[in-house]
Amino acid sequence: MSIEWKGVFPAITTKFTAADELDLPLFEKNLQAQLAAGIDGIILGGSLGEASTLTTAEKETLTKFTVEKVAGKIPVVVNIAEGATRDAVQQAALVKKWGAAGIMLLPPMRYKSDERETAAWFKTVAASTDLPVMVYNNPVDYKIEVTLNIFDQLQELPNIQAVKESTRDVSNVTRMINRFGDRFKILCGLDTLALEEMVLGAHGWVGGLVDAFPAETVAVYRLVKAGRIKEAVEIYRWFLPLLELDLYPKLVQFIKLAEAEVGLGSEYVRAPRLTLEGAERESVLQVIRTAVANRPVLPDYLSL
């Protein structure tokens, strides 16, 4: 399956049971809600998917299960985050074998590569596969920036097609478009900047709170792209306190709590993460429950 790299791509959470095993029935419940809401693709095993705690066997199970359930309706993209280039190349081969349609590729983990090394990393992994690749550019969390000069070098790889833009600088959308035109599709990777970046020309949104609120997320995207900015902004203003849960180190726990509150997930996380408790949990619950109590009535966004 080719990937258009536009629209809403949830970075879906990995559902666990109380016994710390994959909860595939609950995962499917969320997945079906995402499909019904009109998402355009899905990303497995990202930061929200607790990738660093998943075994290769679990990634295989999740990927094959998702590919089967979406039945070709949307592309399934798998995150690759490794410390060694050869391991990333091996993961790319496995991802294709499992049936994924594309890869989201992080820069090297644990080692802060320089510009030459970072470019070589992306080029080597991309050259090893024919799967479409989305570069994840998040220098705030991962300490390595994929600069414009690096993207200039990556142009030679036709399967490097998109970027998950998480620099926290909305102007970077304009810089990318000014420099490369439509060569790289841009998907906003930070919930709190999604509307702004889409107005500036970003093609899509890799979402976090979409895991709990898929319809509202897709509605904002489609309204913006239809030029109905005022309606999108009204929903976005309601959404913002929820979207800000994506900004914290405990975003996984926060978003899983939101999923549990709306019946699309559970609070179970994998250690070393622990479920929320006490005043912290109550504070997050207040944000979620206030938003749910005031949930907006959405227009017929699916017809846009």
Results as ranks from 00 to 15, higher is better:
Ser2Lys: 15
Ile3Cys: 12
Glu4His: 07
Thr13Glu: 10
Asp20Pro: 02
Leu22Glu: 02
Leu22Met: 07
Asp23Val: 11
Pro25Phe: 08
Leu26Trp: 02
Lys29Tyr: 10
Lys29Ala: 13
Gln32Ala: 01
Leu35His: 05
Asp40Pro: 07
Leu44Cys: 10
Ser47Met: 12
Gly49Lys: 02
Thr55Met: 05
Lys59Ser: 02
Thr63Asn: 01
Ala71Val: 10
Lys73Gly: 05
Lys73Phe: 01
Ile74Phe: 06
Val77Arg: 09
Asn79Gly: 14
Asn79Thr: 12
Arg86His: 12
Asp87Leu: 06
Asp87Gln: 03
Val89Gly: 03
Gln90Lys: 10
Ala92Cys: 02
Ala93Gly: 15
Ala93Lys: 15
Trp98His: 03
Ala101Pro: 00
Ile103Lys: 08
Pro108Gln: 10
Met109Tyr: 14
Lys112Phe: 02
Glu115Lys: 14
Thr118Asp: 09
Trp121Arg: 06
Ala127Met: 04
Leu131Met: 10
Met134Trp: 03
Asp141Val: 04
Val146Met: 06
Thr147Asp: 08
Gln155Thr: 15
Leu157Gln: 15
Ile160Lys: 07
Val163Trp: 03
Ser166Met: 03
Arg168Pro: 03
Ile177Phe: 11
Ile177Asn: 06
Asn178Leu: 02
Asn178Tyr: 00
Phe180Leu: 14
Phe184Asp: 07
Phe184Tyr: 15
Ile186Arg: 04
Leu190Ala: 09
Asp191Ala: 08
Glu196His: 12
Ala202Cys: 10
Gly204Asn: 07
Gly208Asn: 12
Gly208Lys: 02
Asp211Asn: 15
Asp211Pro: 01
Thr217Gln: 01
Val218Gln: 04
Arg222Ser: 12
Ala226Ile: 13
Arg228Pro: 08
Ile229Pro: 01
Glu231Lys: 14
Glu231Gln: 15
Glu234Phe: 08
Tyr236Gln: 12
Leu240Glu: 05
Leu240Gly: 11
Leu242His: 05
Glu244Ser: 09
Asp246Pro: 00
Pro249Leu: 03
Pro249Glu: 07
Ile255Met: 03
Lys256Ala: 01
Leu257Cys: 01
Val262Pro: 13
Val262His: 15
Gly263Ile: 11
Gly265Ser: 04
Gly265Arg: 02
Arg270Gln: 09
Ala271Phe: 13
Pro272Trp: 09
Thr275Ala: 12
Glu277His: 06
Glu277Arg: 07
Gly278Trp: 10
Ala279Glu: 15
Glu280Val: 13
Ser283Lys: 12
Val284Tyr: 01
Leu285Arg: 00
Gln286Gly: 07
Thr290Met: 01
Ala291Asp: 14
Arg295Cys: 11
Pro299Ile: 10
Asp300Thr: 10
Tyr301Thr: 02
Leu302Val: 04
